[in-house]
């Protein structure tokens, strides 16, 4: 589906070389892991919200590890699932949250989606 969407809405400036992706994605993912870590630290342990962040961070770490060891061909099959799981973990209604926290979460999601949507555009 992602590939179809990519084909439909493709923009040549968004296509990127595998080497570029390998350089770009870990940096973004690591930053978002750090950001999630800070958020986790600020929430009490008795909230499901905190555990959702934990889950997202865990999946991002898995994705990051997987990315380090995989090739272009096996990326979608072996690694992208972890990134999707992380995105799903953060895909809850956070309108009830503090505006700043909600804004940060939205930003993290956008960044992760951006990485995810580039996967079909790797050449």
């Amino acid at each position: 589906m992602a590939t179809e969407r990519a084909k439909r809405d493709w923009n040549e400036v968004e296509f990127l070389r595998w080497e570029e992706f390998r350089q770009m994605a870990p940096a973004i993912i690591q930053l978002e892991i750090s950001r999630l870590g800070e958020m986790i630290e600020c929430f009490p342990t008795d909230t499901d919200f905190r555990n959702a962040l934990v889950k997202a961070r865990f999946e991002l770490k898995k994705f990051s590890e997987c990315l380090a060891g995989c090739g272009k061909e096996s990326l979608e099959e072996a690694c992208a699932g972890h990134l999707r799981n992380a995105i799903f973990s953060l895909s809850f209604d956070f309108s009830w949250l503090d505006e700043e926290v909600a804004g940060t979460l939205k930003y993290i999601l956008e960044r992760l989606m951006n990485v995810h949507n580039r996967i079909p555009l790797i050449y």
């Binding site: 630290e41 009490p44 342990t45 008795d46 905190r50 934990v54």
Partner: peptide, 25 residues
């Protein structure tokens, strides 16, 4: 460590996963 700082607000026992930080009450 991620959850320990906030644990004092909770009256029961909390179990923290040392691997990922998941908190179980």
């Amino acid at each position: 460590e991620a959850a320990i700082r906030k644990i004092s607000e909770h009256h029961g026992e909390t179990y923290i996963c040392k691997e990922c930080g998941y908190a179980a009450r």
